[in-house]
């Protein structure tokens, strides 16, 4: 698609959404941004014509199975009630082999699918190994223009995504489970830097041990991060978590995040480019030639 045509359609869809509040148009606008090659060109134009309204992004991270989707599902109603509408971006990994993905986070949020105040979108990482899709940042921008005041991001929960989510989200909620005692040990280096709020979900399985581990750890590190225990499926602790998240929000200065976001955006653009080159190499490499170094040598021009 021509760049200009692409932009005109994006603009039209977003205008239609703002006018009608019909998710059909918003969903199409997000696809254009997600599929665009150099989306920042589109978005620069978009931001010059539309107002990017004040909004907060809350990132949820934690091991697979910790209950991120269920927690978000439980929180959705609170956000929808307070802000009129709420958006969720749920990220799942793409297969590095086929490029395909199974996006299953919605299964836990399905009860909201007919709620006109709740917009949920599943996103595959598309080659960005372990991290948030490079499109997520752009999709957030579109959602802000669309008037969402709160945007919840669910990460893949492993690898690069912890670092990504800090750069993209205004506050980060780390989701642990009672069996996470060892996780805390393993995450020591990163955990305190990334979490603004810590949740111990599935607390019905007995949260004491992990709470003690957290307490000890925070004492040693001389930090104080709010910890909330929840049972997402029974809606326990959700009210408290919501209040703590909202409170944490007000402590964050928007300017603190700008540089981090820029860093993330630049990195994802570079990664996209590098991936393009790798793809090109793959298609141009002559594997008939058995010697690895000869293959590389023949690729000199491409690199």
């Amino acid at each position: 698609m021509e760049r200009l045509e692409e932009y005109e359609i994006l603009k039209q869809k977003l205008t239609d959404y703002i006018k009608t509040q019909d998710f059909l148009h918003l969903a199409r606008a997000l696809s254009i941004v997600e599929n665009s090659q150099d989306s920042y060109e589109l978005l620069e134009k978009l931001c010059s014509e539309f107002e990017e309204k004040e909004a907060k992004v809350i990132g949820f991270t934690g091991s697979p199975g910790a209950g991120k989707s269920s927690l978000i599902s439980a929180l959705i109603d609170k956000y929808a009630q307070k802000y009129g509408k709420v958006a969720v971006i749920a990220v799942d990994p793409s297969s590095p082999f086929s490029g395909g993905a199974i996006l299953g986070d919605r299964v836990r949020m399905i009860k909201h699918s007919l709620n006109k105040k709740v917009f949920i979108r599943s996103v595959a990482t598309r080659g960005y190994l372990g991290g948030l899709s490079s499109a997520v940042h752009d999709m957030i921008t579109v959602l802000k223009i669309a008037g969402f005041k709160r945007i919840l991001i669910e990460t893949v929960g492993v690898g690069q995504s912890e670092i990504d989510v800090v750069e993209i989200a205004d506050i980060v909620c780390l989701v642990l489970t009672p069996s996470a005692g060892d996780d805390i040990q393993a995450m020591k280096a990163g955990i305190m830097e990334i979490a603004d709020v810590i949740v111990v979900n599935k607390a019905d399985l007995g949260a004491e041990r992990v709470l003690v581990a957290l307490k000890n750890f925070m004492e040693v590190e001389e930090v104080n991060i709010p910890v909330v225990t929840t049972v997402a499926l029974e809606n326990k602790g959700i009210e408290e978590l919501f209040n703590i998240l909202e409170e944490a929000q007000s402590r964050i200065k928007p300017s603190d995040k700008k540089l981090l976001r820029l860093k993330h955006a630049i990195r994802s653009i570079l990664e996209k480019r590098v991936e393009g080159v790798v793809e090109k190499l793959r298609s141009e490499a002559n594997f008939e030639n058995k010697n690895f170094y000869s293959i590389l040598n023949n690729l000199k021009g491409v690199i």
């Binding site: 793409s94 297969s95 082999f97 086929s98 490029g99 395909g100 993905a101 199974i102 996006l103 299953g104 919605r106 299964v107 399905i110 699918s113 007919l114 599943s122 595959a124």
Partner: peptide, 19 residues
């Protein structure tokens, strides 16, 4: 479909047509 490179969204069982 995933293994063939498609992005598949799965909703789970017992969905209404509207959902």
């Amino acid at each position: 479909l995933r293994d063939a490179g498609f992005e598949v969204i799965y909703t789970g069982r017992r969905q209404t047509v509207d959902q």
